[in-house]
Design a protein around this nucleic acid. Structure first.
Length: 119
DNA sequence: GTTCTTACA
DNA sequence: TGTAAGTA
């Protein structure tokens, strides 16, 4: 199928699909016309990419995880240790971000309420 | 008409 | 990422 068809089936814009390819997330074949030619597997693969993206993972992390996922998989289940490691690392990063944001929020709370800061 | 690449805001 | 330009 061509790019617009894959876009229709996944909700991703053609722009995003080309970007995924640029990031090494998709490797569509090429027609003699130069048009990208995606196979059916591309649909679930793009859905996996979207899921991982919404989980906060970057394209580089996803590029490492994708090869661990059987392309015919419906639900993304941990298949190889690399996948678990990558997800665990991302979770650590997210936890760290949450802590920093919470600290920033606390500071704002004190400023808003005019409470003297603990230092 | 659709897609491609490149480039800019 | 959206969009415009100039092609194939």
């Amino acid at each position: 199928m061509r790019i617009s068809e894959l876009a229709r089936q996944t909700g991703a814009t053609p722009r995003a699909l080309r970007y995924y390819e640029e990031q090494g997330l998709l490797r569509p074949a090429r027609r003699t016309s130069g048009y990208r030619d995606y196979d059916r597997q591309a649909v679930p693969t793009v859905r996996h990419i979207q899921l991982l993206l919404s989980a906060g993972l970057g394209t580089t992390a996803i590029a490492e995880i994708l090869p661990c996922v059987p392309d015919d998989t419906t639900v993304l289940a941990p298949t190889c240790p690399e996948l678990l490691d990558a997800l665990a690392e991302e979770r650590t990063r997210i936890t760290s971000s949450i802590e920093k944001l919470a600290a920033a929020r606390d500071i704002l709370d004190r400023l808003i309420q005019g409470t003297p800061d603990p230092s």
